[in-house]
Design a protein around this nucleic acid. Structure first.
Lengths: 206, 206, 206, 206
DNA sequence: AATGAATGAGGTTTCATTCAT
DNA sequence: CATGAATGAAACCTCATTCAT
């Protein structure tokens, strides 16, 4: 009995949390990260300002929670791919498809990704920004595997990982400017081709 | 006489403007675009707050002017390359070298580049952000030239231009995390290789 | 039957009230009157916030009730002394002992006493603060008795009553800074000596 | 020239600071420490809220500055007495006179004194409250001198110092309840008599 | 042209109190 | 009777901008 009640309450709590996070995502989608104020979040969520502070200790924590919670599914999916038994180039391919389709379905989250990335550059808070750095690291590992197994050329894997990730983001950004986004398949294939084979027709360039 | 006086005044004006812009760049370098206040700019420039508003109509205009003025040299250099008579792949190469060396010498400006880029994504202000879009356009033209002359494969040139630009930025970001930045030559060559030839060793992948 | 039920209910009510008041006292002891919030009271009492408002109309009423209820035993004891048949100086002595030992056993309440006293000074709420004023009045009466019976010198009894009371409080404050408080006897005797005989050795001072 | 200008500016600064502090004192006098909000201070001072923060970093600093600045004259005068060449009992007497006349002229500050005192009791912030503790210490020294020179009885000088100080405050509080305060001379003499000779007529009490 | 105190709108956060369950 | 999420008034503080000197 008591357990049931507690369970229901927890559910309610989760619903409101989600609603608030949803409001944040909507606002960011419409107006960018910069202009998100607690007033606006409250209005968007149809709640009072004070209520936000019941569910989140501060604005910072709220924004952080949005990123953490909303990127988790994507993170998990990518992790699954990375942990899987595909070949390195299959892994790279899968990641591109996965990422594109995720942001097709979660357009609002893309802004946060850019945010993440910018902060990633800061000398000071570099430490904390583990999500982005972590991802770079993991991609680099895949590249290293590929190099070891003779699939990829020798190269500084971390730098190429960065290139790869930013290339994906660039493509996603372009996709989201189109309404609706163009065929996922085409864009994914384009990116993969460029990444694996480059843009040059003849390969005696250098 | 009067002309001379006017001339001198204009010179003074220019000096103060530069000093203020310099202050902004220093601050952004240290703390990021987000946290720059007019108070801080005034303090950094050794001027009063009111004085800033004599030389710039608003904070927004000031920041805009910093971007416009400080990126102009780079823009001009890139333009020169683009207008020149090099082959498309030589142009791409030159641009990479030029960009890397520019930010090696103007570290503080990199933050602004990231800023630019983020705004670029915004649906609302897309119109105004001509600088970034313009650059994409011009790179796309080069790629089209390359495709026409049989150097590059057929592809959506705008999308690849985006990929290229973001790849450069990614590399620059990594370079600036190192202190001092690694050898320019090496990084440039890496990026160019990846761009032109891809990362795969065997090209029968797809 | 119905009576019994009502009786039991009243008992429950009393228990909860006490628990809430207890929580307030604990909090005030730890952090001072200023920072007590209804949230904290609820948490400390192991109850919900809403529940507090079933038992007390408002925060103000709650705090007031704590003072009223918790100081009542002391008030009664002092009253008993005052109404008793001791000589005026014995009464004064007894009061000192009583007060010291009360706060030794109820350290948490001392903060409230200070609170009371401060409010006592306020021109606006002077009316309401009958507890403190009442006490001054009663002590003054004892002094007047002492004067009438030739035990004490002629003096403005109300002013001296104030002096006496504040001197007791000062001593209590000092006692509570020590952990554990020094010997009650010693401190009480010191205060009484100063009060009755003054600090001077020779009495031809003035 | 420039010096003159700077001088004038500093003067202006001082005037505004004083005005703000004055506003605080007025508010505290009228409504107590509790209800002082920055809004009210601004209104009372006839300034905007933002302006307060030009002159004081925070509310806490403002209140602290009021205490520090406004009690300094009194502190200096008492210090002068304490450092002087009077006998211990003359020092005690002078202090009483000085304190009474100070608060007769600065009624508004008395509330702050009570504030100080309350905080003084807190176990946690005891360290910081140097003003009150310091005063106790200095009075204790005078008492020790008096004991050494055979003027005063042997006693715990710190405890008696506390008693003495609180007795003075009690008397001041009573004085300020009267409008206008009764004759200073009379009250001072009363306190001194009680302190030096006690209230008892016959001294064979204990 | 330069100053910097002053402004005021707007931001984040707190907390006593209410009310549907 | 008990709960605790929700409310909303108000508190503290920031900062782009103005203006008298």
């Amino acid at each position: 009995m008591s357990k049931l009640k507690t369970e229901r309450k927890r559910l309610f709590e989760q619903i409101t949390r989600k609603a608030i996070q949803e409001a944040v995502v909507n606002l960011v989608t419409r107006t960018g990260t910069r202009k998100v104020t607690m007033d606006q979040v409250a209005a968007e969520a149809g709640l009072s300002k004070g209520c936000l502070y019941i569910h989140f200790r501060s604005k910072k924590e709220l924004l952080e929670s949005v990123k953490t919670d909303r990127f988790k599914p994507l993170g998990d999916q990518l992790q699954e791919i990375l942990n899987g038994s595909l070949t390195p180039n299959q892994k790279i391919e899968s990641i591109v498809y996965r990422l594109f389709s995720y942001f097709d379905e979660n357009r609002g989250l893309f802004r946060f990704l850019l945010e993440e990335r910018e902060i990633a550059q800061s000398q000071v808070i570099r430490q904390k920004n583990s999500r982005y750095r972590n991802f770079v690291e993991r991609i680099a590992n895949v590249l290293d595997d590929g190099i070891a197994s003779g699939l990829f050329r020798h190269m500084d894997s971390k730098k190429v990982a960065s290139i790869f990730i930013e290339a994906m983001i660039a493509m996603t950004a372009r996709r989201l400017l189109e309404e609706p986004p163009g065929p996922l398949d085409e864009d994914a294939r384009l990116l993969i081709q460029v990444l694996f084979r480059g843009i040059a027709l003849m390969h005696d360039l250098q």
